[in-house]
Design a protein around this nucleic acid. Sequence first.
DNA 1: AGGCTATTTGGAATAGTTCTAATTATTAGT
DNA 2: ACTAATAATTAGAACTATTCCAAATAGCCT
Lengths: 142, 142
Amino acid sequence: MSTTLNSDALSRRLADSGLRSTPQREVVYNILLDKRDHPTADEVFARVKSELPTISLATVYNCLETLVQCDLVRSVNFERGPTRYCPNLRPHAHFHDEQTGKTHDIDLPAELIEKVNSVLPQGYDAKSVEIIFRGKATESAH
Amino acid sequence: MSTTLNSDALSRRLADSGLRSTPQREVVYNILLDKRDHPTADEVFARVKSELPTISLATVYNCLETLVQCDLVRSVNFERGPTRYCPNLRPHAHFHDEQTGKTHDIDLPAELIEKVNSVLPQGYDAKSVEIIFRGKATESAH
DNA sequence: AGGCTATTTGGAATAGTTCTAATTATTAGT
DNA sequence: ACTAATAATTAGAACTATTCCAAATAGCCT
C-alpha cells in the first residue's frame, strides 16, 4: 500500500472541503486503510498511538468525523454499541457475524441497489441506502 | 384499537417465554402500538408516566428489552443516537427523513428480501436483514 | 397465610461521545 | 522572515444513553 498515494488523495479531498492535511488525519486515515476490520474510535485511538503517542482521543474523534464529512470513510452503527469506521467507498452491505462480532463487507451490484430503491413509494427520495445482515459466517467466508 | 386483544396477545407471548404479564409491560406495549413513531426509551418513559406515574426509567428499559426478546417489538438504531422501538412486525425497511428526523416504515415484498439475500456469497448465513434509507420525504408521503 | 421467584425501583456506575477553553500549528499578507 | 488570522489539537470536564445493583414489592403455588 502506498502511503504517499493515500496521502495525496487525502490532502486533495481535504483541500476540496477547505480543510488542512495534518499528520493526525493522515495517520488515522492510513490506520483505517491498513486493517479494514471496522474498528471503533477507541480501537483506532489505540492503533494510532503507536505512531503518534501524544494524540488524544478527542482528536481521533475529530479526524474520523472529518474523514466521514469528506466522504473518505463511512461510519456504521450496529445495535447499541460504539460507531465503527470503514474506508470502503464502494457500494456495499455489512454482514455482522453474531458469533465472532466481526463485520464483513458484501459488495452490492448496482442492479440490486436500484431494485431496493424501487420499493420506495412516491414521495420518498432516498439519498443513500444501508443494508445490514446479521447471522453467522462459516470459516470459508474469510 | 382493542387493548384487550393486545393484552391477550402480549400475555400469550410472554407466557411462551416463561415471563409474566405485568401492568408495566402492558402499558409500555400499548404505548408503542398507540403511536408508531419509533420513540426512544426516554420518549416511551414520558408517555407511560401519564398512566403509571411511578414507573421508573429502568423498568421502561426492562420492558422494552423484554418485548424485543419476545419478538413483539423491534429495536432500531440509526447513527449515534438512542435506540428506537417499533411494534411493526411485518418485514419492512426504515426511511429516515433527514429534514424532519422522522422515521417511516416501508413495506418490503418477500420477493425483494430474497433478492437481497441472494447477494450473499457462499458461507454467509443471514438470520435477518435490515434496510435503512436516508433522504427526504415530501409532504404527500405521510 | 407462607415461601419462592419474578419484577420493579431508584440510584450509582459505565460507555461512548461531545464540548470547552487553552495551546499549538499552519497559512497569508506584508 | 514576521505577524496576524485562522485552523487544528489537546486534556479534561460534561453529557447522554444505557446497564447494573441491591433492596423493596408483587404474583403465584402449595
